[in-house]
Every structure is written in C-alpha cells, then in structure tokens.
Nucleic acid binder design. Structure first.
Lengths: 112, 112
DNA sequence: CGAATACTGTGCCATGCGACTAAGTGTTGC
DNA sequence: GCAACACTTAGTCGCATGGCACAGTATTCG
C-alpha cells in the first residue's frame, strides 16, 4: 500500500506539469524522437530531457536509443493507476451514499 | 484551452501529495473538521492547513466555518477533469489504433 | 577524416513547496 | 471574565524542481 501510494505520487507528479502532459498527448499519436518532441517546446534540450526522464522513471513512457536518436513510446497501461485511484474514490462515495439511503429508509420504516 | 490546462495543473498538483490524497479519501466518508482531519497526520496544524488550502483553491474540496470550527466537504465533481483528460487520451490512442487497422486492412486488400 | 547531428553530463541559479515555531484572533464553556 | 480551544497569520528554513549555459560523447554523412 505504501508502494502503491509511492507509485501514485510519481504518476501524479509527472502529470502535474503541462509540458509532460503535452508529451503524453503527443506520444498518443505514435512514437517520436526526443529531438522531434523538443522542437515543439520553447525550452533547451537538456531541460526537456529532464521531463522525458521524469516520465520514463515514473513508467509513463519507455525510450530506446538506436544510433544517436532516442525514441519515446507511450506506456498506456501506466495510466491505469490513476483510473484505479478514481475508481476507489467512487467506491468510497458509493458506500457512503448507500449508508445514507439505508438511514433514510430506516427512518421511513420507523415512522410507519 | 490554456484555462483548461491550468485547471489540470492545479488538480494534478493537488493530487500529487499523499497527505492531500488521504484527505480526499477521508472526506469520501463524509464532511470532517480540520482539527479531526489533522489529528490523523503527524504534522502541525499550520502545515496541515496549507494542504487544506491547496485542495480548496484547486476546487477539490469546499470548506465552511461555523463558530471556531472549519468543516471540509469533498467536491466530487472536480475529479471529472481528471476523468476527462484520461478520456481524451484514450480517444487519441483509439484514433491511432483505427488508422493502424485501416492500414493493415488496406495492405491485405492490396495483396489480394 | 572531419563536420554536423543528437543527445548527454555537469554545474549553476531562482523559485516554490512543505515542514517548523511562535504569536495572534475569534469562540466556547465554566 | 477568563481559560481552553480551534484555527490563523507570520516568519524561517532546508530542499526539490525546473530552468539555463556550456562542454562532452557517440553517430552519421559527405
């Protein structure tokens, strides 16, 4: 659970930056080289590389180097941890809603 | 779109901290006072208040003060922006998948 | 071979975050 | 009234983040 939390930390931190979200969006269209990606941002290459590294170390993308070109690929599955977290929240809310409904039902029964 | 991006920034930043995610989870069970929430964390009250303020300023919770007690309530709707972003990503992926499938189909047709 | 390309590594700096302590404000209970 | 309570404000501190410039390495092309 602590590991799970740490994973969430990393993924949410990675997603909290607009540049990194942009990269994810961009990679949704298909694999792209670091250079091609960086060209779209008003940022030096070393700065941009940090974002790429953040995304990779948090499992959101995967990169491979062939020759002098590093190519980035989106890891779609990774976003499932966000999905799971959202689903867990909804489960908690629904439990509460159920309890409230039972409470209302019980009160109605008591009134009868 | 820039506004939309700024909203996402705030929400993801807010969710990137385990304390704040804990608060959201906790509030899923129902409204709670700042004091009651803070008591569950190994943290001073001023430090904890900052997290509450971050959550509120990013629209994830709502707070009201009655007397000397401030009560926090979860704003479930706010997490929809995360849902929407995830949905947008999937839409992009599926477009790409569709294109790839068409490509494969076309190739098969050409072979016949 | 040598120049251009595509990163990669290093070091620096400004800013902001998250924690703390200490002191202040407004409410409530005896 | 006044003490306890529940925040709230103010100020400090260490450290992580995100940007930069500059130099280095490995590949590719003519």
């Amino acid at each position: 659970m602590a590991q799970y939390s740490a994973q969430l930390d990393g993924v949410f931190v990675a997603l909290a930056d607009p540049t990194r979200r942009w990269v994810i969006r961009r990679l949704g269209h298909g694999p792209t080289s670091v250079g091609d990606l960086a060209r779209e941002f008003p940022m030096t290459l070393p700065s941009f590389m940090k974002h790429v590294q953040t995304l990779e170390s948090n499992g959101l993308i995967h990169t491979t180097k062939t020759g002098r070109v590093r190519t980035c690929v989106l890891n779609r599955e990774r976003l499932a941890v966000v999905d799971d977290w959202l689903a867990e929240q909804r489960r908690i809310w629904e439990e509460r809603t159920d309890r409230l409904e039972r409470l209302v039902t019980d009160q109605q029964e008591n009134q009868q």
